[in-house]
C-alpha cells in the first residue's frame, strides 16, 4: 500500500473541463471496460487509472481522477480511494523517468543499497526526490519479482536487472539523451530475465 495521500492537489473545475484523453487512450479504455459484465465497469478503475496516469505525465491530479470517475460512471471518491491505496499511482508530479530501485532482501543481499547511493550521488537527489530538470525521480520500492537477477530497478514498463554501477550509469545517460517520459503502459519495454 502506498502511503501517498499527502500532496493531493486542489480540484480545479476549469482544469477539469479541459481534460481530454487521446483517442488511442479512449479506445483502450473502451476495450478494458468490455472485459467486465454489464454494470461491473467499476472493475476497470485500476487499469483505466494506469492509462490516465500515462496521459497526465505520470501522475494523477484530482481533475484526472474526476475524469476517470465520469468515464466509469462511478463517484469521484471511489476513484480516489483506489488511487490512494496502490503504490504505483502518483498523487503528485514526478520526473519523466521514475527510477524504482528494489530494496528488499534478495536485492539488498546483492547490493541494492549501493545502487541507491550511487544514483543519489550521481543525480544529487535523495530517495523520493526529483531532479531540478524534471528528468528523474528516485524511488525505493519493495520486491518486484526479480530477486534472481538482483539488484534491479524498474523504469516505466522496463525491468533492468543484474545491475552494476556501469549499467546504472549507461542507463541514466541513455534516458537523459533520449529525454522522453516512460510509463508502465509503454508498449516498448526492455527486460533481461
Amino acid at each position: 500500500m502506498g502511503a501517498q495521500v499527502h500532496g493531493v492537489q486542489k480540484f480545479d473545475k476549469e482544469k477539469r473541463q479541459a481534460i481530454q484523453f487521446s483517442e488511442k487512450a479512449m479506445e483502450e479504455i473502451k476495450e478494458i471496460i468490455s472485459h467486465y459484465p454489464d454494470g461491473k465497469q467499476k472493475s476497470a478503475v485500476i487499469p483505466v487509472l494506469h492509462i490516465a496516469q500515462a496521459e497526465n505525465n505520470g501522475w494523477l491530479s484530482a481533475e484526472v481522477m474526476d475524469k476517470v470517475a465520469e468515464l466509469l460512471k462511478i463517484k469521484s471518491i471511489e476513484v480516489f480511494e483506489v488511487a490512494s491505496f496502490y503504490s504505483m499511482f502518483n498523487l503528485k508530479p514526478v520526473g519523466k523517468c521514475v527510477l524504482e530501485v528494489c530494496r528488499t532482501s534478495s536485492c539488498w543481499l546483492c547490493g541494492a543499497e549501493d545502487v541507491v547511493r550511487h544514483i543519489e550521488k550521481k543525480l544529487g537527489i535523495k530517495d523520493g526526490e526529483t531532479t531540478k530538470d524534471g528528468m528523474f525521480t528516485l524511488k525505493t520500492v519493495e520486491c518486484l519479482g526479480s530477486c534472481g537477477t538482483a539488484p534491479m530497478l524498474q523504469c516505466g514498463a522496463s525491468y533492468h536487472e543484474n545491475l552494476t554501477i556501469e549499467k546504472v550509469d549507461a542507463l541514466i545517460d541513455k534516458y537523459r539523451s533520449e529525454g522522453r517520459s516512460r510509463f508502465y503502459t509503454d508498449k516498448d519495454y526492455q527486460n533481461t530475465l
Binding site: M1, G2, K42, S43, I46, H50, V82, Y86, F89
Partner: peptide, 24 residues
Amino acid sequence: QVGAGAYICGEETALLESLEGKRG
C-alpha cells in the same frame, strides 16, 4: 487485469476486492 502495487492483493479476498475495482 493488472493491479497497481500492493502485496496484500495476493491474498485471495483482497485480490477479489481489487478485481472489483476497490482498495485491496
